[in-house]
Design a protein around this nucleic acid. Structure first.
Lengths: 172, 172
DNA sequence: TATCCCATGTAAGCTGTTACATGATTTG
DNA sequence: CAAATCATGTAACAGCTTACATGGGATA
C-alpha cells in the first residue's frame, strides 16, 4: 500500500498524530496524493499492529490528548525497502476526459463551459503551486527532491492549459 | 459512477458484450480510463437492473453465446444527464512521485534508475499514442473530440519527458 | 454566542484488483 | 499440438469515500 509508506515517510521526518498527517497530505503532497482522515487513522493502526510505528499518548493541556506516532526501526526498514522496490504501475482515471470523449452528445456551449471550468481550476491550482514553490526551501538534496515533485505538478498544469486553449479554439 | 457512464457511452455507439467493452477500454480510452472484466460485468448487470440497458442473448455459431447489451432510452437520458452534470473532482495519485518525494532516503543510482525507468515507460506510451493518432479519423466532430483526448495524453507525456530530463540532469 | 480548529474514531458502502473456474475455435 | 482468442461469470479482498459521533478551546 502506497499510503502506508507515505505515512512512514512523514513519520520518519517527525513524530505525528493522524490529524497532523492529514494537514501534511493536504499541504505538502496534495499535488500527487490525497488521503482522508478515516484512511489515515486506519493506516496508522495497521502500522502499529505491524510494528512499523509506535504510539505515545501525549496529554493535551486543555486540548484533546494527542496520539503521537513515531516510526520504529522496522518501519524505517520497510520504507527503505518500498523506495527501492519495483514501482507499482498506476493508471490515471480522468472523468473530465471521459466527458470530452463523449462530448458530441453535449450542446456546444455546454462543452465550452466544461472546458472553461477545467481551465479555471487548472489556473487556480497553478497559482497555488507557484506560490508554494516560491516559498520553498532549496537547501538540501531532500528539499530539492520535494521541490521537483512540485515542479512536476506545475509542468503538467502548464501542458493542460496549453491543451485547453487549443481545444477551446478548435471547438469554439 | 464514471465507469457506468463510459459504458453507456459505448453502448450508445453500438450494442456490445462485456468482452467487446473490455477491448474498447483497452484500445480507445486506455489513455484516460481503465477497467477490468470483473468490473465491467458487474457494471453491466447494474445497468440492466436500473433499466439503462437491455440484454439479448445471441447464439454463437461455434463460439460461446454473446450477451449483447444495448442502451435503452432511459440509459441515453442518464448519459446525457451525466455529461451535463457537475464534473466529479478527481485526484491523481502517483506512487512514482511519492518515491521521488522521499527519494533522499534512496541511493543516488537507485534514484536515477527510477527516473530512467519512468522515462522509458513515458516514451513507449508516447510512441503508441502518436501511432494511434496517425491512424485516427478526423472527419466528424465526434471523432475530433475523441482525438482531442488523445492529444491531451500526448501533451502530458511530452511535459513529463521534459521534466524527467531536467530532474535527471539536476540529480545526476 | 456561533463558528472554526484541534483531535479522535466507527460504520457502511462503493470501486477496483486478483484469483478462480469453464470451454470451444482459430492460428502458429 | 500448443497457444491465443472469444466469451462468460463468481468470490474474496483491498482501498477510498461519506456519513455518523463526540467534545473542549479559541476566535470573531
Amino acid at each position: 500500500m502506497v499510503l502506508a509508506h507515505i505515512i512512514l515517510g512523514f513519520l520518519a521526518l517527525a513524530p505525528m498524530t493522524g490529524y497532523d498527517l492529514k494537514r501534511h497530505f493536504d499541504s505538502t503532497v496534495g499535488h500527487f496524493w490525497s488521503a482522508d482522515r478515516a484512511q489515515i487513522y486506519r493506516a496508522l493502526a495497521t502500522l502499529v499492529a505491524d510494528g512499523h510505528a509506535e504510539v505515545e499518548t501525549v496529554a493535551g493541556s486543555g486540548a484533546p490528548d494527542r496520539q503521537e506516532h513515531r516510526v520504529t526501526d522496522a518501519g524505517r526498514a520497510a520504507l527503505a525497502a518500498w523506495l527501492a522496490a519495483e514501482p507499482e504501475r498506476h493508471v490515471d482515471r480522468d472523468p473530465f476526459l471521459a466527458r470530452v470523449f463523449f462530448g458530441a452528445d453535449l450542446a456546444p456551449d455546454a462543452l465550452l463551459a466544461l472546458l472553461a471550468r477545467r481551465r479555471a481550476e487548472a489556473q487556480t491550482r497553478l497559482a497555488d503551486y507557484e506560490r508554494l514553490r516560491a516559498e520553498s526551501d532549496t537547501g538540501t538534496r531532500a528539499a530539492r527532491l520535494r521541490l521537483a515533485t512540485l515542479d512536476n505538478g506545475i509542468a503538467h498544469l502548464r501542458a493542460e492549459l496549453t491543451w485547453l486553449d487549443a481545444v477551446t479554439e478548435e471547438f469554439a
